[in-house]
Design a protein around this nucleic acid. Structure first.
Length: 594
DNA sequence: GCCGTTTTCGGCCCGACTGTTTTCAGTCG
C-alpha cells in the first residue's frame, strides 16, 4: 500500500522481526481511509465510527505497534480494538496490505474521497453527486458546476453550487493547520474585540487551542453576555472578518482574512462551564465522558448536565466533572488517552507549572547565532524568574561557519567564570551545543567537552538517513559519556519538516540506562519532542529538560510553549530536569559523565 | 465494528444551522 513507508530493498536480518516498516501512522491512515470509503458506500455509521476511533487510538499510542505485535502483544487489548480490527492490524503489519482496503479501493472511485474535504459535502451528498452525475473527482465536479448540472441533483440548489464553486476556488488558499503561536495572535485579537462588546461578560478560547495542541485547524470561542447580543452583526463588523459561513443566534462561524476559521458560541451564564467544557473537547474525550454519564442516567450537552429534565450542573467546568464523579481534568489532558480512567481512579498527574521551572539549559549568545551577550541573557532570564541558565552556543562544524572552536570555547568558559564571580543573582552554567555528525560522533573532542558543566548534543543535518542508520547514529552518540542532553531530538519543524526516522524505543531505552536526558525544545516552531514522545520518555524514567533554545532576550517566553507541550505529555515537576535546585542539578549533570 | 452493573444483542454523544423543503436530512463541531 502506498502509505506504508516500507522499502522492499531493506535486507531482512536474522533475529530482526520487522519485515516491513509499518508505523502506527500507516495503520491509522489506512483505518481513516477505510472509514471514508465505507461512508461513501453508505455503510452503518457505527461501523465507520469504529474505524475512526481505532485510527485515533493507534495514532495516540506512545510505542510503535509493529514490534510489539512481533513480540507477542495482542492489539485486541487496546480500547476500541476488537478481534476483527486486531486481525486487520496484524494483517497490515505482517503483509503490508489490508485486503479490505484493497477491495474498497476497487469499488469506490479514488477521487470521490477528495470531495469529502469540501464544506457541506459529506458522504451522502458525495454519493448523490456520483450517482446522479457520475462525478468521480474534483475535476468532474468543476465541470458539472460550470454547466450548472449540480443544482439539478436532489438536495442541491443554487446556493450549494455557489458554495462549492467558492470552495473550489479557495482550495489552494486555505491554510491547513497552523502552529499554535500564530493562531494565538489571531485568537487574542478576536477575543479582545468580543470582550469589548457591550454586555459581554466572558470570552474564552476553547478547542484545540485551549488543550495546548501544537497546531490548530480553527479557533473555537465560547462567550456569554448579560443581555441580548446580535452576535452575527457584531462579527460582521470585526475588522478581520472576511466572510460569514454560519450565522445563527447562538452559533456563528466566520472566516478571517488570513483564512483561519473561527467558530463562536454564545451561551447563557449558567451554561458557561458546560459550554466551555464541551467546546474544549477533544471530541474523543467528550464522547467518552458522555458515555460515562449515560451509564449513571445523566445526559451532558453544552448547556449542562441533566438527570431527566432537571439540570444538575453546568455553570463551571468543575461542576460538570463533579456531576459525573470525576475530579477536574486539565484541558491539556483531554485527549482520551487514559485521563478519564486516571481521574476515576484518583491517579491524575499533578502537571508541571511554569513557576516550578528554575532554570533553562539551552541558551545562545551573540558569540554564535544569538543576538545578546551573556550579561543580557542572564538579566532576561532573571526577569523570567529563573535561577540558572546554561550557555550552549554552537560548536564549530563544517555546516556552521560561526560556531565556537576549542579556542573560542575556552575564552567563553573564562567569560562565564568571570560573570559568575561578579554577581550572585543567577548562575550561568558552561555548555555547548555540539553537532551529532552523520556517524554519531561529535563535532568537538572529549578533552574539550569534559571541561564543561553540560553538553547538549543535536542533529542538524543528514535528516534523511534510513531508520536503522539514523537509530545507530543516535545510539553511538549516546555512547559518548560527556553528553548530558539530546536537544530537539526529532529535528522536526512544525508544518515544514518531518522529524528524522528513528526507532525511539531503542533511543529511550539507552538514554534511560545511561542516563542521558532529553530536551523538550520550546521554540514554538519545534516543540520537539512531541507530547506522546514526552510522555513515553518520562514513563521510562528519563528526565526531560524543558528548554527555551533562546537566541535573544525575549525568547525565554518560549518556555510557556514547551511547558504546555510537557503538560500534554503528562509531565509532573519530578519528571523535569530543570525544576531541580542548582546543587541537585549539578549532581544529575555529573551523573551523565560517569 | 465494539462492548457489557443493559454481557452475545442491541445499543452506540448531542445539538445548531443550512438548504431545500414544507418537516427534515445532512453536515459540522
Amino acid at each position: 500500500m502506498t502509505s506504508t513507508r516500507a522499502s522492499k530493498s531493506d535486507p531482512i536480518k536474522k533475529d530482526q522481526p520487522p519485515l516491513l516498516a509499518v508505523h502506527n501512522e500507516d495503520i491509522a491512515l489506512a483505518f481513516d481511509e477505510i472509514a471514508d470509503l465505507l461512508a461513501l458506500t453508505g455503510e452503518n455509521p457505527f461501523r465507520i465510527r469504529a474505524y475512526r476511533r481505532a485510527a485515533q487510538v493507534v495514532r495516540s499510542l506512545p510505542q510503535e505497534l509493529a514490534p510489539r505485535i512481533a513480540a507477542g502483544f495482542d492489539p485486541d487489548l487496546l480500547p476500541g480494538i476488537g478481534a476483527d480490527l486486531a486481525n486487520k492490524i496484524r494483517e497490515l503489519v505482517s503483509s503490508g496490505h489490508f485486503l479490505k482496503l484493497d477491495q474498497l479501493r476497487r469499488s469506490v472511485p479514488a477521487g470521490l474521497r477528495e470531495l469529502l474535504a469540501l464544506p457541506g459535502i459529506g458522504p451522502q451528498r458525495a454519493r448523490a453527486l456520483h450517482t446522479a452525475l457520475n462525478i468521480q473527482n474534483l475535476s468532474d465536479l468543476r465541470h458539472a458546476l460550470a454547466s450548472h448540472q449540480v443544482r439539478k441533483v436532489a438536495g442541491f440548489g443554487a446556493k450549494s453550487e455557489a458554495r462549492l464553486q467558492q470552495a473550489l476556488d479557495q482550495t489552494t488558499l486555505r491554510p491547513s493547520r497552523i502552529p499554535r503561536h500564530i493562531a494565538r495572535q489571531y485568537g487574542e485579537a478576536i477575543t479582545h474585540y468580543l470582550t469589548s462588546l457591550t454586555g459581554v461578560t466572558q470570552v474564552t478560547l476553547a478547542g484545540s487551542y485551549r488543550r495546548g495542541c501544537e497546531t490548530v485547524g480553527d479557533l473555537d470561542i465560547v462567550m456569554c453576555a448579560d443581555r441580548e447580543l446580535d452576535l452575527s452583526s457584531a462579527l460582521s463588523r470585526y475588522s478581520e472578518t472576511s466572510s460569514s459561513l454560519v450565522t445563527g443566534p447562538t452559533r456563528c462561524t466566520i472566516l478571517l482574512r488570513c483564512g483561519l476559521q473561527v467558530d463562536i458560541r454564545l451561551v447563557p451564564p449558567e451554561s458557561y462551564g458546560a459550554a466551555l467544557y464541551y467546546f474544549t473537547g477533544s471530541k474523543a474525550h467528550n464522547i467518552h465522558v458522555r458515555r460515562l454519564a449515560s451509564s449513571s442516567g445523566l445526559k451532558i450537552n453544552e448547556y449542562g448536565v441533566y438527570r431527566g429534565r432537571t439540570r444538575i450542573a453546568g455553570d463551571s467546568e468543575i461542576s460538570v466533572f463533579s456531576a459525573v464523579g470525576l475530579p477536574f481534568i486539565e484541558a491539556e489532558l483531554r485527549e482520551d488517552r487514559g485521563e478519564i480512567a486516571a481521574g476515576l481512579a484518583g491517579n491524575l498527574p499533578a502537571l508541571i507549572e511554569r513557576s516550578q521551572l528554575l532554570g533553562d539549559l539551552h541558551v545562545h549568545t551573540g558569540r554564535t547565532d544569538g543576538t545578546a551577550t551573556i550579561d543580557a541573557m542572564s538579566e532576561a532570564a532573571q526577569r523570567a524568574g529563573l535561577q540558572y541558565i546554561a550557555i550552549t552556543d554552537h560548536a564549530k562544524h563544517i555546516g556552521l561557519l560561526h560556531g565556537l572552536d576549542a579556542t573560542a570555547l575556552t575564552r567563553q568558559i573564562d567569560e562565564i567564570d568571570a560573570y559568575n564571580a561578579s554577581q550572585n543573582q543567577l548562575t550561568v552554567l558552561k555548555g555547548i551545543e555540539a553537532d551529532v555528525l552523520a556517524d554519531g560522533t561529535l563535532s568537538l573532542p572529549d578533552h574539550i567537552l569534559k571541561q564543561l558543566d553540560l553538553v547538549v548534543a543535536a542533529v542538524h543535518d543528514h535528516f534523511d538517513l534510513p531508520r536503522r542508520k539514523q537509530t545507530d547514529r543516535l545510539l553511538r552518540m549516546l555512547d559518548n559519556r560527556y553528553i548530558s542532553i539530546l536537544a530537539h531530538p526529532s529535528t522536526r519543524l512544525l508544518t515544514q519538516r518531518n522529524g528524522i526516522d528513528c526507532n525511539w524505543n531503542e533511543i529511550f531505552l539507552r538514554a534511560a540506562q545511561r542516563p542521558c536526558y532529553l530536551e523538550l525544545n520550546s521554540q514554538p516552531s519545534r516543540l520537539d519532542l512531541d507530547d506522546i514522545q514526552v510522555r513515553e520518555a518520562a514513563a521510562q524514567g528519563i528526565l526531560i529538560s524543558i528548554a527555551s533554545d533562546a537566541h535573544g532576550i525575549t525568547d525565554f517566553a518560549n518556555l510557556d510553549y514547551g511547558l504546555i507541550q510537557g503538560r500534554r505529555g503528562w509531565l509532573t515537576s519530578t519528571q523535569v530536569l530543570n525544576t531541580r535546585p542548582l546543587t541537585q542539578l549539578r549532581k544529575l549533570l555529573r551523573n551523565t559523565f560517569l
